[in-house]
Write a protein that binds this DNA or RNA. Structure first.
Lengths: 174, 174
DNA sequence: GTCTATAATTTGATAGAC
DNA sequence: GTCTATCAAATTATAGAC
């Protein structure tokens, strides 16, 4: 694995744990066994690193759910994919960045926004009677998932994710 | 208004904008017109200040929704109360703190957790056929609301909050 | 209750040798 | 691609005068 990939891996772990301001270039350097100045050789600034990470993360996520059939099956695939964020109690990368948006470099917030638009458009397919209805449902389900991660994390009980994001009694969708 | 209240007001604005690490004691001092060292006279540490803020914020929120009748009316009251967070595009205080949880002082995360437990217990009343069902629904609706704020904020469109949190076509609840 | 002064640490980033 | 050395700025916090 390349050093750049190792740096992105470490950054992903740390951002999901404590947010954009929850890690430093020195932390990354220690994690991969180089010096903090060398990190700048791979990514010129912290903002550039996080934008690159967001793009890698978005691509991987969309690859994961790409094979799912439109409609309820795809929604289930999304729920399962986001559920992995909770491995170790971490947030969804885009959820943290969105929550901290006001204190972040604009390109970073834009990257998070691009992911959400992409996910909404994809999840919306076949989710409603009309395209507009599908989009509304996709938006609502994504919101529920992001919020479920926050609640499960804050209340320190990963099982709450399933209750909050998947209990069919609430949406009547699945 | 006391200086302490002014400091909490400023901190609330800044945390909702950029998170726990999105402001400093100097920022607060400038906002209320004193020096950064004087802030420590009112709150010994940053963590203590945010815990005090979380408690004030939780009390105010519960006061706001206290008069609502159990069931769907109370849910509507919750949605409206959280909606105010979006005034100016800010996050819900507890939502940001929960998202950044891994990088925060434990007492701060605990304070956020206490609010969510309190809100869930209160919102659950009359929301389901059984107490357990009410709790599940309360959890799911709170998740939807928190996620809706994140999405509306990240996509820079406050109207998306209503679509994500309140579209009745999704939950069939209201 | 507010001030000045300052300590101790951390941060993101740069210059230039190897 | 990694290093040493370093910078300027910001951070939380403390001591003690007024």
């Amino acid at each position: 694995m390349s050093t750049a990939d190792g740096l992105l891996d470490a950054a992903e772990r740390m951002i999901r744990e404590g947010g954009y301001h929850g890690f430093s270039f020195r932390d990354l350097a220690v994690a991969v066994g180089i010096r903090s100045a060398s990190v700048h050789h791979h990514f010129p600034t912290k903002a550039a690193l996080v934008v690159a990470l967001a793009e890698r993360c978005a691509d991987r996520f969309m690859d994961t759910v790409a094979g799912s059939a439109p409609g309820p099956a795809r929604l289930a695939a999304y729920r399962a994919a986001f559920r992995q964020s909770l491995g170790g109690g971490g947030m969804c990368l885009f959820g943290v960045l969105g929550a901290e948006a006001g204190g972040l470099p604009v390109p970073v917030v834009d990257a998070a926004g691009r992911f959400f638009r992409r996910a909404i458009a994809h999840l919306a397919e076949g989710l409603g009677e009309t395209p507009a209805e599908g989009e509304r449902r996709a938006l609502a389900e994504l919101a529920r998932i992001e919020g479920a991660i926050i609640l499960a994390r804050t209340l320190r009980d990963p099982e709450l994710y399933d209750v909050a994001a998947e209990s069919s009694g609430v949406t009547g969708l699945v």
